[in-house]
Amino acid sequence: MERQNIRKLMRERRAQLSEIEQLEAAKKINVNIFQHFKNAKIRRVGIYLSNDSEIDTSLIIEELWRKNIKVYLPVLHPFCHGYLLFQRYEKNSPMTSNRYGILEPKLNCSQVCLVEDLDVLCTPLVAFDQQGNRLGMGGGYYDRTLAKYYREQRTKPEIIGLAHDCQHIDQLPIESWDVPLKTIVTPKKCYLW
């Protein structure tokens, strides 16, 4: 199956989840992600606001704030097209919609955190497979932003994909630029490679 067809199928699958199923999934993934973090010293986490029936990250964000862990959201880079910046996100952060209609903090360069200064970066995904391969929405923003990190084989931040269990398939068609994730967390399981 082609990547575009997989994207369509997986987006349809997660869109079919009821509000109750979405809420239960959010509660379970929140437990699983903090179980995964239990022995780690984490000060800064990059995460995203859910969109398009993605697994709801709001409970994770609330728990990070409760634990006094700084939260950073992706912002479309204003000068380097196709790249992301990660900006501090607090309850009162002024927000704006980006060109895709996704909320992001209004750009404030003094609140931007370098990727390598994040302890954890949680990424969205449309599908993932048995080998940890991740299929995104197709814009390549995370791939481009993290290319240097992968090339240099850095260990920080820990990159974690977040997904519904229904987004798991046996095998994805991969491209030369694809780098498998070492960790993917779903409501039912934490996959480690």
Results as ranks from 00 to 15, higher is better:
Q4P: 05
P94K: 00
G136H: 05
I102A: 06
G82M: 08
P157F: 04
L73A: 04
E104T: 02
R99F: 03
S50T: 09
N92I: 15
G139R: 05
D119I: 02
T123Q: 11
I102L: 01
C113K: 05
L9I: 10
L125M: 12
E54R: 09
I160F: 05
L9Q: 14
A163V: 06
F37E: 12
K8G: 05
C122E: 01
I169T: 03
Q16P: 11
Q171K: 12
R3Y: 05
N32S: 11
V45F: 09
E12F: 12
E12Y: 10
I159M: 00
L23A: 14
L23N: 14
T96S: 09
K188Y: 06
L192W: 05
E62S: 15
E90A: 01
L146I: 03
R44A: 14
I160S: 00
V71K: 08
E12C: 09
I33W: 05
L103Q: 11
G139H: 08
V185E: 09
V115K: 04
S110F: 07
T145D: 05
E62Q: 13
P157H: 06
E152Y: 01
L181Q: 13
R134S: 00
C166P: 02
L125A: 10
L107A: 06
T123A: 12
E90W: 03
R151D: 13
W193G: 09
I169M: 03
R66Q: 14
Y48P: 05
R66I: 02
L59E: 08
K188V: 11
L125Q: 02
V120C: 07
E63S: 13
G46D: 01
Q22M: 15
L121D: 08
F86G: 06
M95R: 04
R43Q: 14
M1D: 06
P173N: 10
W193H: 13
A40H: 10
C190S: 10
K27R: 14
E90M: 03
W177Y: 12
V31K: 15
R66H: 13
L192P: 04
N30T: 14
I29T: 02
H77W: 03
R3V: 04
F37D: 07
T96Q: 14
M10C: 12
V31D: 14
R43F: 12
G132Q: 10
R66G: 07
L73H: 03
E19T: 14
L135T: 08
V115C: 01
R144E: 09
K182R: 15
R3M: 04
Q87H: 01
A127M: 06
H36F: 15
W65F: 08
E152Q: 12
D119E: 04
R3H: 01
I169L: 10
Y48L: 02
L162Y: 04
S58G: 09
G101H: 03
A163E: 03
Q171F: 09
L135K: 00
N30I: 02
